[in-house]
Amino acid sequence: MSSERRIDLAWLMLVLLSVGGAGIGSTDGNAVLVAVGVSVVMAIKLRLVCSYFLELHEAHPRIRRAVMTFCHGMPVLVILTTAFGDTLSRLTGALIG
């Protein structure tokens, strides 16, 4: 498969995930489960952009690691701050009064 064809397929996947992901968000379910669903879709989309659009595999390993940490960190933080919002509120309460 040509590199152009792979980019086209990645874009198609991204469009489908964006529309499908919007459907996940509009469901009335357990907040943590919705956060997990939304985060998984977010992680897949970020991975597709990094791999096929940004071509991160060609970047310096340190740059690649830093960007991937940011991309993987966000979905994880979404889940953790949804599941443990009370704890985060207590921990940061002293900072913001």
Binding site: G21, A22, I24, G25, S26, V34, S39, V41, C50, V78
Partner: peptide, 14 residues
């Protein structure tokens, strides 16, 4: 990529 992070935070996570 940044938008792909912002979008679910405000439009999806109810």
């Amino acid at each position: 990529m940044i938008w792909l992070m912002i979008f679910p935070l405000f439009y999806l996570l109810g």
